[in-house]
Design a protein around this nucleic acid. Structure first.
Lengths: 209, 209
DNA sequence: TGGAGTTAGTGAAAAAATTCATTATCGCTG
DNA sequence: CAGCGATAATGAATTTTTTCACTAACTCCA
């Protein structure tokens, strides 16, 4: 385990750098400087170097970074050098979209199952996946060795579903419901609140009126 | 215009407080202390008071805050005391889900239109909305007096669509594509990268292995 | 009406994150 | 192979954000 705490903002930027590097690889770039990365993703070059410095030395002074090498290092740091098994709970608008979203699979997240309580949609298929009953949660988590649970249910049921996921052995939760979840300290929790993002936009728009 | 810069983290928390207050109103609560809000949303009470202090004095010492009153104040601060007209560009998985997502409308965002380039889906309906051609972008923005554009197109087209939106007069962009967009300084831009969130989860999972 | 108990507001201290500026290396050129 | 230009690494300074701790003000109760 890494000894020191890494700022979340740093991790977020590493993820962005890695995607930018991927793009550069496709464009056939061989080496790149911190300044160019900075420019490409909209931060300062010092920021790029500082972020990388948490994890080691990856570049060559006077030259820059080897694109493919830095990319691999970042993927390893981000834990994306292997795939994660994921379950989505809630097959409404959002859950369905997430299940079908290509981006997750592209970055190493296998969507192994999607669940719902609504009998009308259980059995329907979303791409390759069949919507299963919530009652199968524990069995599916076990069967697919699932590490990550995605919450896409209404706020009122979010905590209940979370408890079931943790009970079944899931180690991380990505919560799309607008509800603060209580989880033990060793569980990794991340909240994505779509309307919060629109509201930050709204706040900034309202400032200049 | 507010004179001083407000940390984005503060704005995000205000949005979360406001939703928690809404929940409390439905539960019939009348007054609440900073400590209880803090507990409900998982921050410290000092944090709650400091966040509010940027905008004025809303509580009564020795008592707390009047739930409904604080809620209204926050909604005003967040610019949610009136509705915003919004257009979604891209009617793929993500764009469709966003268009159908009830949460946006609940919080004051009218989805006025959704566009795509794919002739196979133009004309299809999503709930109340008909998918229109991208060519109608400028006309629709004008017609509906749209202030906010949501980008849900593949990365390769994100900048182009952004330019078209700004050209048409949109003042804020919510970008769901994994691409860094260039916009003039007076435009409000916010990026939501769904896989970044999963990757931060992955990073934290990978730490403890 | 006064004292005890709460709790908002707030300046100061601490912690965290970012930026700056210096140093150390590298590759290249003559 | 020495010197120059470029750029990563990094410690220091700065800025930003959070936490702490104190003060002010309200309610309730005797």
């Amino acid at each position: 385990m890494k000894a020191f705490k890494i700022p979340e903002a740093t991790v977020m930027r590493l993820s962005i750098y890695s995607r930018y590097l991927h793009q550069l690889m496709e464009e056939g770039e061989d080496t790149i400087s911190s300044g160019e990365i900075a420019n490409g993703v909209g931060v300062s070059s010092a920021q790029v170097r500082k972020d990388l410095a948490y994890f080691g030395e990856f570049g060559t002074r006077g030259v820059g970074y080897k694109v493919s090498e830095l990319y691999c290092q970042l993927m390893k740091i981000l834990g994306l050098d292997h795939r994660w098994n994921t379950i989505i709970v809630g097959a409404g608008k959002l859950g369905s979209a997430l299940a079908l979203y290509q981006g997750f699979s592209d970055r190493g997240f296998n969507i192994c199952a999607i669940l719902d309580v609504n009998p009308d949609i259980i059995g329907n298929t979303l791409g390759e996946l069949e919507i299963k009953s919530l009652q199968e949660l524990a069995a599916l988590v076990l069967q697919h060795e699932i590490q990550i649970g995605v919450i896409a249910v209404p706020a009122a049921h979010a905590q209940d579903v979370t408890d079931q996921l943790l009970e079944a052995g899931v180690k991380a939760i990505l919560n799309f419901s607008p509800r603060v979840l209580k989880v033990p300290p060793d569980i990794v929790l991340r909240n994505v609140d779509l309307s919060v993002n629109l509201e930050i936009l709204s706040f900034n728009l309202a400032l200049n009126r």
